[in-house]
């Protein structure tokens, strides 16, 4: 009798321990699964851009896009490349698509200029590291936004972004802006900035400044296309359906929303 009572108590104690330890573990794993499915859940709206590499080869088109963006947002023009601020720029094919080239890729292809900007990723690594939520993914339209008022200049996001899309203000940018557009604020020393997909223009139903500028050029039609990825009838979805497109560094799992027609 004593013996069985003792073993009963032992078993009861052990099961209580098992339940106590098991539940939190179970809950944690369920939550982890939920987190992942949340990330994968498509937003009701996701702004995206398609860049046609062939149509963006002409210096005239490249120059017009970059200048339109940088004028629109008071982006300074600083000679020292380590301190320069850029929202949109070009880089050689070889560097932009390092994982798509190999030692025998044609030299001429390696050297092609490719337009690059913030990818407004579906799972942005910059957002994960920002300690103040100064950069975050807007749920209403999928833009990876910058709140300049909250940025403390820690530059974690610069280190986290695998695309070099962000720039840090090492100095007061105002002296380096040729003509300040009062409608858009400048930035100060100590904040990080990047392309915001022209959130302020989109709010008024316009397309981003770079897209508008190159559409106006005769040779720039279709070079950059902007639209809602969640809308099956949008121009970007149409192009993605019809043409072969690639994204930058797909292996990282950030899921960029800037696509390239090659």
């Amino acid at each position: 009798m004593d013996d069985s009572r003792r073993s009963f108590l032992k078993k009861a104690g052990l099961s209580a321990l098992g339940i106590g330890a098991g539940f939190p573990l179970l809950r944690a794993s369920v939550r982890a699964l939920q987190d992942e499915s949340e990330q994968a859940a498509p937003l009701s709206k996701q702004w995206a851009m398609v860049i046609d590499i062939h149509k963006c080869l002409q210096p005239e088109v490249i120059k017009t896009c970059i200048e339109a963006c940088h004028r629109e947002h008071n982006v300074p023009d600083i000679e020292d490349p380590r301190k320069d601020i850029e929202w949109i720029r070009t880089e050689s094919f070889e560097k932009v698509f390092a994982d798509q080239t190999h030692p025998h890729t044609q030299e001429s292809i390696k050297q092609l200029p490719v337009m690059i900007l913030c990818n407004h990723c579906a799972s942005p690594s910059c957002v994960r590291v920002c300690p103040t939520k100064a950069t975050w993914k807007r749920e209403q339209d999928g833009i990876v936004m910058m709140d300049m008022h909250r940025c403390i200049g820690c530059r974690y996001c610069i280190a986290a972004c695998p695309y070099g899309a962000r720039s840090f203000n090492w100095q007061d940018p105002r002296p380096f802006i040729q003509e300040i557009r009062p409608e858009y604020p400048t930035r100060t020393k100590g904040v990080v900035e990047k392309c915001t997909f022209c959130f302020e223009r989109i709010a008024k139903g316009m397309v981003p400044a770079c897209v508008e500028a190159c559409q106006k050029l005769p040779q720039g039609a279709g070079a950059l296309t902007f639209g809602d990825l969640a809308d099956a009838n949008s121009e970007v979805v149409k192009i993605l359906r019809e043409k072969y497109t690639i994204r930058r560094r797909p292996g990282l799992g950030t899921a960029p929303n800037v696509f390239y027609v090659i």
Partner: peptide
């Protein structure tokens, strides 16, 4: 092509 910001990438 661009050397600007090349260091970054």
């Amino acid at each position: 092509p661009s050397r600007r910001g090349a260091a970054r990438l």
